[in-house]
Design a protein around this nucleic acid. Structure first.
Lengths: 236, 236
DNA sequence: CACAAGAGAGAGCACTGCTCTTGCGAAGGG
DNA sequence: CCCTTCGCAAGAGCAGTGCTCTCTCTTGTG
């Protein structure tokens, strides 16, 4: 224990957090330049003028460094989506929905390797060590929030639901979005996943020779995604 | 050149193709067990009782081995989808659509690492060296084929299209599916990408604590995906 | 049958993640 | 104010990786 929290914090601890940040920065640079597969602890150490073994004082393993980067990436994407949403907070529901979708796409195009890190192949065997869960949920929760507002304004109509999906829909609503009609949940969750299908395909080259007018294509797809999720009204 | 094609083929060439196949088999086993990141040339060689340098007679680099596995994976998925489709060749369009979707999902669940290899993060920097294109297109073309049949039966209604997307839609129809109404193309392409969003999210753990009744959820989502793509009629 | 071409072995280079030991210097208690 | 502890970095080293080069021997083929 060192003194009170968020106070002086001890010169030693301060240095530690600084070095930790420097390591993450260098790692993020390498990640952006070369991708997660080529991220090397030794190269990071070299860039910082330290020796590789010294890094292990800050991150017990390469995977832990990656986990830190993953959480940061989720947060960065979540924040980008949230600020984009805030910028159109007064618009109609569908407009806000597409704003979030486009923010996700733009962030992904701007940070392809970080996007790959969080929505591509899970890197080490697999992971997602629970600590990443809140950060990972931000975009999904944001979309659900848009839907909830739409519901309150009467701009959400749940599509018909097959009876065998009713209990699952009830559970989803109870767990994830109390206040939303259960029948709307499956479509919303599906739209969330489908959004990342669109983004991932564009980013990972699947649209090569298939979709040329990417911007217009995505904008249209986002609107239709919102409609499929139950949003009504104009996309002004 | 050795003799006529597909004839005796020379005992030497035969041995070569056999060893090549054995290498790919061993590599595929390792891929399925450990994932692409942990696939090691030396381990493959060990399993085959050869020395690592001998492998380079057959694959000039690790990435070339991976590329071969990628093509095989695309083909395996494509074949699975095609046989599943053939099995319901007489059913209504929407039923055939969902059959393909479910085949994709089941193949992915059965071959997670191979799915990750082709639809996850591009492994080495990036690749897709054109040789993979035909294999990679099979599922997409199959879905377009379902749509074309539906169109001929009058079971496809193109959704409204914003005017700025019209030229792109024309190009898509001309390049990918002559015989389909251009206005249907963007929705079909989007549905194709969105299908893999659903599958990828389930496979990569994004549905943890979110979707529990995966089977029912996906079946419903696939139907709605087909409807969003323009398919009408029953999903018998 | 002679011989070149093909295939495998082995050593070695540069690199990786990670561990363990050693020395140093600053932080903090008596 | 001294002295001890503790955090930090360095270095050597281990096991593993992809890949190259050279050498040898087998084997199919003209």
């Amino acid at each position: 224990m060192t003194s009170s929290p968020s106070a002086p914090l001890g010169a030693r601890a301060r240095a530690r957090t600084e070095v930790t940040a420097a390591i993450k920065d260098a790692a993020r640079r390498q990640l952006a330049a070369e991708g997660a597969a080529r991220l090397s602890l030794r190269a990071v150490a070299r860039e910082l003028g330290m020796v590789s073994s010294a890094l292990y004082r800050y991150f017990p393993s390469r995977d832990d460094l990656l986990t830190a980067l993953i959480t940061d990436a989720y947060d960065s994407l979540g924040e980008a989506a949230e600020t984009a949403h805030a910028r159109v907070a007064d618009a109609a529901s569908l407009r806000r929905w597409t704003a979030v979708c486009e923010a996700v796409r733009h962030w992904a195009l701007a940070h392809p390797h970080e996007y790959a890190l969080i929505y591509g192949t899970p890197v080490p065997g697999y992971s997602a060590p629970d600590a990443t869960v809140p950060a990972a949920s931000r975009v999904g929760l944001l979309l659900l929030g848009v839907a909830r507002d739409a519901h309150e304004r009467g701009e959400l109509t749940a599509p018909p639901l097959p009876p065998e999906l009713a209990p699952e829909a009830d559970r989803m609503a109870a767990d994830l979005a109390p206040g939303l009609p259960p029948a709307a949940m499956p479509s919303l969750i599906a739209a969330w996943a489908q959004l990342f299908g669109l983004v991932g395909f564009e980013l990972f080259g699947q649209f090569e020779r298939v979709v040329e007018a990417r911007e217009e294509f995505f904008r249209h797809a986002a609107v239709r995604l919102g409609r499929a999720a139950g949003l009504t009204g104009e996309d002004t």
